[in-house]
Amino acid sequence: MSYDPPRPVGRLLLTPEDREAPARVRRLHRLGLAQRPDPALDAFAAHLAGLVEAPYAMVNFLVEGGQFFAGLRVPEIPPVRRGDGTSPEFGRVQPRDRGFCPHVVVRRKALVLEDVRDYPRFAGNAVVDEFGIHSYLGAPLIDSTGTVLGTVSAADVRPRTWGKPGLETVKASAADLVRRIERSAEDGLPL
């Protein structure tokens, strides 16, 4: 099992140290998660995107060597274009130092960033420039063993005032998904 320690940038530690990574990876394997995209998790991400009216939503598991979006909703027409007219592809696998979900996992609590550019720790993240992500809303997936499996999150290309309704929605969505995951594992059925 490989685990990439965080890398400091200047005096800022952009990606937090994740001491629970080995236990999380073992738990994800036991639950049969984070091995392949799951249509049920894609549907879950699409539903979350609709609830908070965001172009991006993810069910993200932190795995060996990075992050895996087992559930993903991205806009059909990417909102960011490169100088040559093409758009970057938001893939299912990202390095651990991209995005904001690793912070949610280590914090073990929701994170609301109305404009990521207002926070020096987050403004320099690659997803800001590459995908135009300017706001983020995420909550941890904490199972009954106390393991943070990953996150559910939404992101937008414009600054957003997510407010208390957005925070409550993402936290309730995370709790609902954990119940579904654990019920599925108990019953031996797909999500």
Rank of each mutant, 00 (worst) to 15 (best):
P39V: 07
A154G: 11
P102S: 09
V93C: 09
M1R: 12
V74D: 05
F61N: 02
L62N: 04
D115H: 07
L33F: 08
H134K: 09
N60G: 02
A43F: 02
G66Q: 08
G66L: 02
G71Y: 04
A155F: 05
L51G: 01
E76P: 15
D4W: 07
T145I: 02
H134D: 04
V80Y: 14
T86S: 15
G132K: 02
Y3W: 06
A21H: 13
E20T: 13
G138P: 01
R160V: 05
S173Y: 01
A172G: 15
P159T: 09
L177T: 00
R81N: 11
L41A: 11
P78N: 11
R82I: 11
A57V: 08
D129M: 01
F69Q: 06
R36V: 01
G66W: 12
P55S: 10
E64G: 10
N60H: 05
R158N: 10
R108A: 14
N60I: 01
L177S: 04
L28Y: 00
R98K: 05
A126V: 12
R30D: 14
D187V: 10
E64D: 15
G32A: 13
R7L: 10
I142H: 00
M58K: 03
T147Q: 14
V59M: 07
R117G: 01
F122M: 04
S87F: 12
V148L: 00
N60D: 11
K164P: 08
G50R: 14
S153A: 14
H103W: 15
F131I: 02
V63D: 07
D97W: 07
D129N: 05
T161A: 15
K171P: 00
V157R: 14
P102T: 08
I142G: 00
S153L: 00
Y119S: 05
P16G: 12
P37G: 12
D42T: 05
D115A: 06
R158Q: 15
R82H: 15
P55F: 07
D42M: 09
F131E: 04
P165L: 12
P79V: 00
Y136H: 08
D115M: 09
V104P: 00
T145K: 13
A172W: 07
G99H: 02
I142K: 00
R27K: 08
R92H: 09
V157T: 15
E114P: 01
L167K: 13
F90L: 09
A21T: 13
G32W: 10
E182S: 06
P95L: 07
Q94T: 09
S135G: 06
I142D: 08
G138E: 01
L33W: 10
L13F: 05
G99F: 00
R121P: 01
L191G: 04
L31V: 03
G138A: 03
V80K: 15
S135Y: 07
K109A: 07
M1A: 13
I181W: 01
P55A: 08
P22Q: 09
A185F: 06
L14D: 04
N60A: 08
V104T: 02
D129V: 02
V157S: 14
M1P: 07
N60Y: 01
L189M: 03
M1C: 05
